[in-house]
Simulated scan of single mutants.
Amino acid sequence: MSEEELNADGWAAIDEALEQLYGEQEQKHYGTAIPYMLGGPDPLNGISVYEVREPLPHWHFITYGFSELYEKESEDPEHSGYGFELTFRLFKSAAEDEPPAWALNLLQNLGRYVFNSGNVFRSGDYMDANGPIALEADTPLTALAFIADPLLPAIDTPNGRVEFIQLAGITNDELLAMQVWNTLGVLAEMKEHLPLYMTDLQRDSLLKLPAIAEAVRLGSESEGSNTGALYVDQLAWENPADDSVHTLQLGAKQAEIVGKLLRGRLLKGRTLTLAGPEISVSFETGDAPGFEIRGELIILKLDEAAGTALSEIFRPSAGLYSLPGWPELAVRIVPTHITDNEGTIVKTIG
């Protein structure tokens, strides 16, 4: 049965939303030859790309495949599939006649992440790419922020609701600012310099602008961090045989952000949870420092002095550190190796 013979109400609903935005402008559509369920490499059914001139020349990418494009299959009546499609606005140079292939690959890679993990993207999320978002490109943009597409409101389809979530390329320090405050707050401060949250591979960090840096500082100090949980792949906990000194392990790359998050959470009386491959560690405020082990969950109670000491230890410098006034706990920071797609180490932190 061809796609034309299928019930494609979900696909048609996305087409209709784009027609309302772009009229009869002909888009470039990049389909998938072999469906993912039949062993094809690309999880998304297709990606449409529009050439847009205002407010600056750019490509506007829209995915087809995170939502249910054909028959309703999920048991969730309110949402179509994962409940969203991704969009991406990328600055277009005068020399470009076709949208760059790396952007199509980026969207398909995000599709693999969602399909394989079951994790979804929502407005306010962020993701560290651990390298340039455009592979082999000389760009400071190494992470992604997610926000509702400013010109594509959510739609109700026969298969349920679909939101259009736009990704925007950000720098590492902008990612850090979003982690210690919140994504939407930082993007709001940067909006004047990011028309339609467009991605420009050549732009520098907007935190170098004093007004934005100060607004972000004030926001994080007054509101604290919205990041209540963080995945830390090098997280570990060591129980000594003689039950003397227990050791908390972190990777150097994430140690600094954990320290900043501790200050942004505990000072506001909020819990911070780190999730690792085998254990989770929850930091909570307490009258005195101590810890409790509940199977794979370690709960660390921190008073003000212990919280301050930990936040100062958490930095991208490998070593074994003891805590003043808390001899039962030590912290080990281990080097983090950044690898490319082939597994070759391209950078070591710590």
Rank of each mutant, 00 (worst) to 15 (best):
P55S: 08
D9I: 13
G10T: 09
Y30C: 10
A8V: 14
R53P: 00
E16D: 14
T32I: 04
Y30A: 06
L21E: 03
G40Q: 05
Q25A: 11
M37D: 10
A13L: 10
S48W: 01
E5I: 13
P55E: 07
N7K: 15
P55L: 09
G23M: 05
I34T: 13
D42I: 08
A33Y: 08
N45W: 03
E5P: 09
L6R: 15
A8E: 13
E51V: 08
I14G: 06
K28C: 02
G39P: 03
Y36T: 10
E3N: 15
E4Q: 15
M37C: 05
P43L: 00
L38N: 05
G40T: 07
D42Q: 07
Y22P: 08
D9S: 14
W11T: 06
R53L: 01
I14L: 13
N7T: 15
I34V: 14
V52C: 07
T32Y: 00
A12T: 11
P41Y: 05
E26Y: 04
E54K: 13
E54Q: 15
G10V: 10
A12K: 13
R53S: 06
I14D: 09
D42C: 03
A33K: 07
N7H: 14
G46S: 12
G40V: 04
L6Q: 15
V52F: 02
Q27S: 10
E3D: 15
D42W: 04
P35F: 00
G10M: 12
E5S: 13
G10F: 06
R53Y: 01
Y22F: 13
G40I: 06
Y30M: 07
E4I: 15
E3T: 14
T32E: 04
P35L: 00
G46M: 07
P41T: 10
G10C: 09
Y36D: 07
E5N: 14
Q20A: 12
Y22L: 09
G40S: 08
A17S: 13
R53E: 05
D15W: 06
R53K: 04
L44E: 02
G40A: 06
G40Y: 03
E54L: 10
I47Y: 00
L6H: 15
K28V: 06
M37Q: 06
P35A: 02
A12P: 03
I34F: 04
D9Y: 12
Y36C: 04
Y50P: 02
G23E: 11
G46N: 09
G46W: 07
D15T: 09
G39E: 00
H29F: 09
Q20Y: 11
E26G: 01
M37K: 03
A13D: 14
A33Q: 04
K28N: 05
A13Q: 14
W11F: 12
K28Q: 10
T32F: 02
P43S: 02
Q27A: 10
Y22E: 05
T32W: 01
Y36R: 07
Y30S: 04
Y50G: 03
T32P: 02
L44M: 03
E54A: 12
L44G: 02
P41A: 07
A12H: 13
M37L: 09
P41E: 12
